[in-house]
Design a protein around this nucleic acid. Sequence first.
DNA 1: CCAACCTTCACGAACGATCGTTAAGTTAGA
DNA 2: TCTAACTTAACGATCGTTCGTGAAGGTTGG
Lengths: 204, 204
Amino acid sequence: MRPAGQNALLEAARQEFAERGFGSASIRNIAARAGMSLSAMYHYYSGKQELLHALLDEGMDRYFGSVTAELTAVGGDDAAPADRLGAVVAATTRFRAEHATRSNILLLEERSLEPERLEHYSRRQADATNLFREPIDAGIASGEFHTPYPDEARRGVIAMCNAVAQWYRPDGALTLDVLVDRHVELALTLVEYRPQRSFAARGR
Amino acid sequence: MRPAGQNALLEAARQEFAERGFGSASIRNIAARAGMSLSAMYHYYSGKQELLHALLDEGMDRYFGSVTAELTAVGGDDAAPADRLGAVVAATTRFRAEHATRSNILLLEERSLEPERLEHYSRRQADATNLFREPIDAGIASGEFHTPYPDEARRGVIAMCNAVAQWYRPDGALTLDVLVDRHVELALTLVEYRPQRSFAARGR
DNA sequence: CCAACCTTCACGAACGATCGTTAAGTTAGA
DNA sequence: TCTAACTTAACGATCGTTCGTGAAGGTTGG
């Protein structure tokens, strides 16, 4: 459990960074939004950079939590590759829509990290990519996915999901549940998912 | 034809904005990179905002130029929807790779525009979206594209192309020509392009 | 032809504002 | 009494912008 002041700071920083971008954001504004003085902020975080770092880390924690929850819900490693890919796509799409500002900071402010901090973040981002890579490669190996370009298909699926944070508006005509289903279908289309017929599975 | 000083300024601003982001960019650095004094910059542009605006406008001009050139190369409006979509995807993918810094500014710094300038830019971005929408909707209407979700497929294709500006490295193992071909194939897969058989076309 | 004038392009200096950061001191609870 | 939580005040640096100046070059009027 985080102290209340710390949560208020993270929330305030999230709003400020999302609205103005890291470079134009003012830590004075952030402290004011959190209802405390500028120096009080320094009691929790050693500077603007660490604030961003904490924000990105917290966002990653939440994202991985969402995806792994969805993965275990469909059966974890026992599930078929198509179901695992569907779970990752569904969780990612939903996360990008439900935590749009969080996601936009994750996706846009990576470059504002100093080199040392960036290294740590890049590792986590590689882990996130592997969430997609694993089921796709498994589907290729098992013969259920037929795309000749699994790497480019993976990048395409990830880009499709991530873009949701930029364009989706919950007050629009498109329901999130509907969008999630369609993204799962589109992802399976992109990897050319065709369930093996039973006689083909038994053949050989 | 633009004056030499102006081109140097745009190039310098492009580098600075791409490296540090609009908010953290310093117009003093930009002027220094362009080899002129800070005040000389104000002779060409009335401020930091107008510099960004000019940069985005120039990038858009180049992008539309690339796409329309590719479109006319495949036959313009006379070409089949699949060929038109392929041309747009190919030109966009190539542009994102060949003009990565330009593209990243186009894609990331939109939010740094002031409201009035943003309005003008959003209109151009809508035009860019229509470059994809037109052939996709035409392909649906003609029965060559079978996806039940043309809107989401369009967004997916656009996101896939745009992401190239972030991850593609020309010194990597993947040739740009190969990537372009794969992206065209993936886009046609996503819209579920299936050429009509001749007898089916003659049927009815 | 020439002098007066204007525009273009460039310079250094300075403006007030805001930035991130730090120092020193105060309060409140365990 | 110790420590976490928080304050006000100030630091130096840098920011975007403005001002006044002037060299260079072409145009105009006499």
